[in-house]
Design a protein around this nucleic acid. Structure first.
Lengths: 198, 198
DNA sequence: CGCGGGTGAGACCGATCGGTCTCCCTCGGG
DNA sequence: CCCGAGGGAGACCGATCGGTCTCACCCGCG
């Protein structure tokens, strides 16, 4: 039904100190395969680290997952999405539209992995779950970024606008996961309508 | 990180023949908790059936999941979404907008479970996976329904239109899963812009 | 009455899960 | 030079996974 495999050490097995290597291996495996599908054995094999070394740095798989989500936010949200968006435009409205210009080549990658926060959120059922709380918090911070841009663009209701923009982003990411390579263009066209309307 | 539990028999444990009871129990558990999180033990406990009885009707968990997806399409897609939409309006454009009127109370349910097809698709990694193929096929058929309405509404590019409408639907479902109870209204407003534009 | 199919209960299987523990080796600093 | 911390290897733990097998039972049909 779904195999993980990949018990071979990856390129990140030679990175730096143990903690960095573990997190690097977990980052790739979790990003590609989700949380439940990736076992501790796969992570230690991938990062070339002993079992006990992992548990010396992370108390449990859950803590490792939380560290992964933090890293994902640092790398994907801030280091990639926000940085690329801000590099591509100055005007806030153009920055909002630039989100989908950044998405477009991402959607076309053959190793497209989708949004980790959405995936983790859907994987964790329990509403009290710390992992679910962390992933929804990451999504909320993405919305905060959008809301600031919307405010700068002078839209009437920045919160509603940001939530709508985020619907376009999430919908297009899922569509891209389904195989629609043009999902970014479609979402951008919808975004243009929203911007034009006020 | 995420517990399933619910080892007590559910109301569907007294339904009818064994196969029906198994499928009914699996339907509830899979819909609420996803596929990976639900074990065979939980399903047999829920449906009040012996282990071997399950394996006499379904060769493997994968086959049970495929049967679940079929049932989900019958109940959710056709028996609920499409039926409700067609009951609420005659005009194709109004039917498209009615999708979000149908979504709205669904999003507000406290046992809101989200879209099973999206969840199963994201849970299964392997591109060759039969389960993933079945879930994306179900999503494609939803798009087919939208495309027919778009064609009847006389839009210029029904395929592009349906894919955009589906982006709004999927995005709003994920947003609702995050906790945005007003996601249906937001998506509907975006839909209105798309309809107005052509 | 007797027979046979469908079922329930539950032991059992090997594999894997997350997590613990021990032993040994290596390497750097006093 | 020695010592101790950090890390590698891998045995081990109980629990759970999907799946198999046996056996007794019940019920309807001939």
């Amino acid at each position: 039904m779904a195999r993980t495999d990949a018990l071979t050490p990856g390129p990140e097995a030679t990175a730096g100190d143990a903690r960095t290597r573990i997190l690097a291996g977990a980052y790739d495996l979790f990003s590609r395969n989700g949380i439940r599908a990736v076992g501790i054995d796969a992570i230690i094999a991938r990062s070339g680290v002993a079992r006990m070394t992992l548990y010396r740095h992370f108390a449990s798989k859950e803590e490792l997952v939380l560290a992964y989500l933090e890293l994902r936010e640092e790398r994907w949200t801030r280091g990639w999405l926000q940085e690329e968006v801000e590099a591509r435009a100055e005007d806030p409205a153009e920055r909002l539209l630039a989100v989908f210009d950044v998405f477009d080549p991402w959607f076309r990658r053959d190793d497209f992995e989708g949004c980790a926060f959405i995936r983790v959120m859907l994987e964790s059922i329990d509403g009290e779950d710390a992992v679910r709380a962390a992933s929804t918090a990451s999504l909320t911070r993405i919305r905060g970024f959008l809301e600031a841009l919307a405010r700068d663009a002078g839209v009437a209701d920045p919160d509603d606008f940001a939530r709508k923009w985020h619907i376009l982003m999430k919908g297009s990411i899922v569509a891209a996961g389904e195989g629609d390579a043009d999902a970014a263009r479609r979402a951008q066209e919808l975004g243009r309508l929203l911007l034009a309307q006020g």
